[in-house]
């Protein structure tokens, strides 16, 4: 279902290699388009390690980060990405209560549009909200997370991390474990990794497993040890503390007993696996510090570095048409 969702107005001429106006999700992207974004991100990894950046290709452009939901890491990552490329970055922290309901969301979109932003980065607590805004504005829109739906740049940075550490993604066994029901990170990762031909397993207690998740091309497990057997990558998701007090899981310690990634577990069942986590981590709950901080096994800080590079690539690619880059106009 829904693989080739190329709606009129979303696909635009120029830059045939990436013919999308917005990045609202991994859904709708072809595998070669995902690979293209990863390839584009590679150049920024090296550039970001240099003491200064000389490439200010977004100079003079205005980037608005409209965050309707609290975020520290993603907002910071997008802000740094924009500034490294020379864009004028403005952050809009929309108070949750005043913009959640009513026409206000559309009104906000119209306001942002009238301010002539060149690219808008949006995070919102409702699934589908970013698409709704994207339909109303003239400039490219980047989804920085909408409800439980998608978080495409997170999936891209995870894919880039795996590709660089393991030399490729196809046929790698990737296990995503944690609160899949409420996770946009999981949905985007499943879409991206299955598109790139990885073997994706998901693991959670059934109270946190979305129904019919297998239809997205993954294998579902409730037993953590079985799930991670011979894994190439173990990706742990954050479990929000309010869901660990009886609502979905009886307690933190019971969750840790069944699904906590300990060094012992890792050595026993997945001795070669790379460990990933989108952050912020609950140390001692879904992941032990010894695993998270392990120099060779953990790619968690590398994910953060990849995040900036991937977001620079996305901002660059999506603004190429308005900047009149040759072959894209």
């Amino acid at each position: 279902m829904q693989r080739s969702d190329h709606r009129p107005g979303t696909l635009i001429p120029g830059g045939a290699v990436f013919p999308h106006r917005h990045l609202t999700g991994i859904h709708g992207l072809e595998p070669h388009e995902i690979t293209f974004l990863l390839d584009e991100a590679e150049q920024w990894i090296e550039a970001n390690r240099a003491p200064t950046t000389a490439d200010k290709r977004l100079a003079g452009l205005t980037q608005i980060n409209a965050f309707f939901e609290n975020s520290t890491r993603t907002l910071l990552s997008f802000e740094i990405a924009g500034k490294r490329l020379g864009a004028d970055v403005v952050n809009m922290h929309a108070a949750q209560s005043s913009v959640k309901k009513g026409e206000t969301l559309i009104d906000t979109a119209m306001t942002l549009n009238a301010m002539r932003a060149d690219v808008i980065v949006i995070r919102h607590m409702s699934s589908g909200a970013v698409r709704l805004i994207a339909d109303k504005v003239d400039c490219p829109v980047l989804n920085a997370g909408d409800g439980r739906h998608e978080h495409p740049t997170q999936a891209l940075l995870d894919a880039l991390t795996i590709r660089r550490r393991l030399g490729g993604i196809a046929n790698k066994r990737v296990v995503i474990c944690g609160d899949l029901l409420h996770s946009r990170v999981a949905r985007s990762n499943i879409l991206a990794l299955t598109a790139l031909a990885a073997e994706v397993r998901v693991c959670a207690p059934s109270t946190l497993m979305p129904p019919e998740i297998e239809r997205m091309g993954v294998t579902a497990f409730t037993d953590f040890d079985q799930a991670i057997a011979h894994a190439d990558v173990v990706m742990m998701l954050r479990l929000q503390t309010e869901r660990m007090s009886g609502g979905y899981v009886p307690s933190m310690r019971e969750y840790h007993l069944r699904y906590g990634l300990t060094m012992e577990r890792l050595e026993r069942y997945a001795p070669d696996a790379l460990v990933m986590h989108p952050g912020p981590m609950n140390r001692g709950v879904e992941i032990d510090s010894a695993v998270a901080d392990h120099v060779e096994r953990s790619a968690i800080t590398e994910q953060v570095a990849m995040g900036v590079a991937v977001r620079m690539a996305c901002l660059d690619v999506l603004t190429r048409r308005s900047r009149g880059v040759e072959g894209w106009a």
Partner: peptide, 15 residues
């Protein structure tokens, strides 16, 4: 309704 569509869209769903 809980099912593939709700799961893909990330919508709160019930059996």
């Amino acid at each position: 309704t809980a099912g593939e569509t709700a799961t893909r869209l990330g919508l709160p769903a019930a059996s």
